[in-house]
Amino acid sequence: MLEIQHLSKSFNSTQALDDVSFTIHPGEVFALLGPNGAGKTTAMRIIMQILKPDEGEILYKSEPRAKLKRNIFGYLPEERGLYQRSKVLDLLVYVGVLNRLSHHRAEIEAIRYLDKLGLVDYTQKRVSELSKGMQQKIQFILAMIHDPEILILDEPFASLDPVNQMILRDIINDNKKEGKIIILSTHQMSEVEFMADHLMLLNQGKSILEGSLDEIKSRFKENAYYLEAEKNIGAIKEIRDIKIIEEHNNSCKFAIDGKETSKEKILQTVFQKISIKKFIEQEPSLNEIFIKLVQSGASESRENT
């Protein structure tokens, strides 16, 4: 279990992180979300011990971060850079060896990953000869070659094509099944909905939302439903405690806004009055929650200043 406790970090006058805490269990994917400059990368760098926090602590299996071996962690930084002139295999072996793999073992692992990502023909090529997408795959291998227990991926899907996104997703899922802890940051909400078990929304260094995906979705449920009928749905307007959000000929979107009557009763009435063809409970997308929260947060802070 990885515990992040009350992390704070400021650069000069900017508060990059303000009392951020979260906990991740093995086999979980934890997503850090937030607009640019929210503090995601800072949090990751602190976990990677690249930056020192002003306050707060990081514990893994109850051990403080400073006592942990570096090779427990695997890191894909947001800024993508590689030694352009070195050979692919040499570079992978170098990072593998830095992480306490034997030279031989590092070579085996490097080739295994290159093969898995379809790059085995490029083993002896220079990095500069590779396409941008290929270089990004090399960076994934650099983060994972030593089989770390905790994987920290900053914007792993940025500028990857859909096929490679899928490959990466599979690799992350494999790691998840192996019981590893995975922290990733992303702007792509669809990815989070696919993969994340737990997420945190950061804005201006503060956590403004945290929880499991189901929890958050139910928390932001607006009790909205989509309904498609055989015939005209005019009858729905007669039902009490219903607010129509959108209306078309044979379909509509509505929300229950009655407080006295229970949700089930109202829905029963709806089913009695209308012959239903399709009925879906409308869940808010993470994207909507994200935009809503960030915008309200931004307006709040604007009011404050």
Binding site: R45, M48, R70, Y75, P77, G81, V95
Partner: peptide, 16 residues
């Protein structure tokens, strides 16, 4: 200079 410019330094700093 190069490691600072191409950010390889972040990878290095993670492991050393």
């Amino acid at each position: 200079m190069q490691e600072k410019t191409n950010r390889v330094i972040e990878i290095l700093l993670s492991y050393a």
